[in-house]
């Protein structure tokens, strides 16, 4: 993946397939400590302890379970390659949280890329799901919440391409404004 936002897109499709109604994506970038964390949290069907142990391994999982493949192993590889780690917490019937930490300045860390496009692609894939993006950087926060957007839209379809294009730009502008010239 050439952008971390593509990993986020890929991992979040798992949440949609797990039947999640609410998906929270949190990106925390602390430039003062040089640490970042990306977490995707859902209220989908969750996984058993046994399943959690195997999802990070592409070779034992792809052959037996079609819904698991390279997505989590790739995300884990990036985290570990960039001075961080991948953590999975899951409970059947409750949901799953996948979180990856990384060192911001690590030379191998892919850029965040077009997070706005990731969010709008997800909304297009599953308009009924509620997506929330929390972008936190050095104590400042930007929240994008489809519940709020849908209220504003008052019945107009959120998956309309013109609206998605607008939301993509709105998200990217707010993030850019929040981190103020820094590169993520």
């Amino acid at each position: 993946m050439i952008e971390l936002s593509l990993n986020i897109l890929d991992i979040t499709y798992n949440s949609i397939r797990a039947g999640a109604k609410n998906i929270d994506i949190t990106v925390r970038a602390d430039f003062c400590t040089d640490e970042m964390e990306i977490s995707i949290s859902d209220d989908g069907c969750g996984m058993s302890e046994e399943m959690v142990k195997t999802v990070s391994d592409p070779f034992t999982t792809t052959r037996t379970t079609r819904k698991v493949g390279m997505g989590i192993p790739l995300f884990k590889m990036y985290a570990e390659m960039c001075g961080g780690a991948l953590r999975i917490n899951s409970e059947p019937g409750v949901g799953t949280t996948i979180a990856a930490t990384m060192k911001i300045s690590h030379i191998d860390r892919p850029p965040m890329g077009d997070l706005g496009q990731t969010m709008t692609t997800l909304i297009g894939a599953s308009p009924a799901t509620e997506f929330k993006l929390n972008f936190v950087s050095d104590g400042k926060e930007y929240i994008f919440d489809t519940k709020e957007i849908k209220e504003t839209l008052d019945g107009v379809e959120i998956e309309n391409v013109e609206i998605l294009s607008f939301l993509r730009e709105m998200i990217n502008e707010n993030i850019e404004n929040l981190i103020g010239g820094k590169i993520l």
Binding site: D10, G69, Q117, T121, A125, V161
Partner: peptide, 23 residues
């Protein structure tokens, strides 16, 4: 196609382009 393989190969901007043209 928007699986891991598609996304890694660049499917997200392809989907975006189709959406923009259709709109």
């Amino acid at each position: 196609g928007m699986a891991t393989c598609g996304i890694a190969a660049g499917a997200r901007p392809v989907l975006q382009a189709f959406g923009e043209e259709i709109e």
